[in-house]
Design a protein around this nucleic acid. Structure first.
Lengths: 270, 270
DNA sequence: ATGCTACTCTGGTCGGACCACACCCGAGGA
DNA sequence: TCCTCGGGTGTGGTCCGACCAGAGTAGCAT
């Protein structure tokens, strides 16, 4: 196809990059593209789909951020764009940016986190022996050293919570947890200075972590759930983040709509 | 800045587009960029940050897919890239693609859905008068016509479930619900042919929807939660989707790792 | 005053040009 | 014969310049 420099639409509708995205999605759905496979090169796909390489790149960038592919330059079997399907990164980016753009109120994030973690803890406790808590335990040990900076401590803390979700074996919930954590990471760090006695707080957190794990290992779902709820709300209360309470900024001031997914009915809600 | 055609690194590290992404994120965090604001033009930002316009575009594409901006060509106040922060679309794209790429097992998606919906129903029931269920009710009415195609019916059904989440007022959970729904939409439609008597099933679903709403309006959290759980699991059982049971393909066959977010400890889990 | 036309700015695409990188293979030396 | 080293080749990463379509806007002509 020899499209003169400025001939985008050609036969198809606008959004050349979306063409690429849809092509990849279709290939994934019909199984012609599987995790571990290599996508055609950018130039190849460009000519195959009749779009410019720039458009292919834009689509690839999206896929990369969404955690679907991993690109690597050079040559050999490890080069090129490879399907990896690692949702964590994408979920984190999405939630982090949405929180930054005020699409996700911090309160809602905390609430969602509470919900997920409580459920995870209860589920783990209900079937302890089906899960592997070694990772979580190892993280608790790593959190023991008294000289840990708040930053380091909180990173491990976050990893501990994600490890619990991971132990439950649910990829979706794990990804969500990772995303939520990453979304409010900034606020958590911001809250550290508001804590009077960090050493004491750290000790309390360590203790609570152990208690949670014990409740899980004991198979006491209700206790595990209650403890993790207290653990989370307690920390937010102390670090001066607004304790979960009703609030939500206007969904979006943008005066247009008409997405495919937009609801049909009017929305006088709120 | 006059970078000769092929001079990408210049003074900064690789990933020019990421520079743009970070710039925007920072601007959002420090408040210099707010929902409704217009971003600088691509050419402008390009020269400002010392990167090529292509890189700016790649970043913009990511932001667009993530639901952070809305671009529009032309002139005037409505043109350009505008911060909108509508997480639904991005969440849907992410989950849909992850399911397609087998990063999210369908089972896990259903389980997550179950968890979120049950919580939403319970929360709504616990504080009925604080929420507005008009949208949900309206959708139920729209679902009444007996001549509805399964496709149409299921679209409304999905909207009903999302409307419940929306009524709870939690943006994060609403976005997640919308994403999860969109992720398994294909599978749901695929399951329709496996239903022997669609008319009867539709009637049952209508009835269950009403019952759920009644339980919520009655303020009976436990009942609302139980009913919505049965509602969901029941449908999946009937449409022949594998009933939620233990399963999870290998997280990712990709032989590399080393992300910032990767855990420190070994992971012999599953 | 009114109406129409140019202008200008914006995103959307394309194509071509480089760079850095990593593999692969063949030539040449030990 | 085996090992080493240097080019060849292909990949993503980036930049640039060009052009198109759309949408306001200013200004000229009537």
């Amino acid at each position: 196809m020899t499209t003169t420099p400025g001939t985008p639409p050609e036969t198809e509708s606008p959004r050349a990059w979306k063409t690429v995205l849809e092509h990849v999605e279709r290939a994934l759905l019909d199984g012609s593209l599987q995790p571990g496979d290599r996508l055609p090169g950018e130039r190849q796909l460009s000519t195959d789909l009749g779009v410019g390489r720039s458009s292919v790149r834009e689509a690839f960038r999206v896929l990369e951020v969404l955690g679907l592919i991993r690109t690597r330059s050079g040559s050999g079997p490890n080069a090129g764009a490879i399907i990896v399907a690692t949702p964590r990164g994408g979920m984190s980016a999405l939630m982090r940016l949405q929180v930054a753009a005020q699409g996700f109120p911090v309160d809602d994030v905390v609430r969602a986190r509470l919900l997920l973690e409580a459920s995870v803890a209860a589920e783990l406790a209900a079937a302890v022996h089906d899960h592997d808590l070694a990772d979580a335990l190892q993280l608790l040990d790593a959190m023991e050293p008294p000289g840990l900076d708040p930053d380091e401590f909180l990173v491990l803390d976050a990893q501990f919570h994600v490890a619990l979700a991971e132990a439950s074996g649910n990829q979706v919930i794990t990804a969500m947890m990772a995303g939520l954590r990453s979304a409010i990471e900034g606020y958590v760090l911001e809250g550290v200075p508001h804590i009077r006695d960090w050493g004491a707080t750290a000790d309390r957190l360590r203790h609570e972590h152990r208690e949670i794990l014990h409740a899980i290992e004991r198979g006491d779902s209700a206790d595990a759930e209650a403890r993790i709820r207290d653990h989370i709300t307690g920390y937010y209360a102390e670090s001066l983040l607004p304790t979960p309470a009703q609030n939500s900024p206007a969904p979006t001031p943008d005066p247009d709509s008409g997405r495919e997914s937009s609801r049909t009915v009017a929305s006088p809600t709120r």
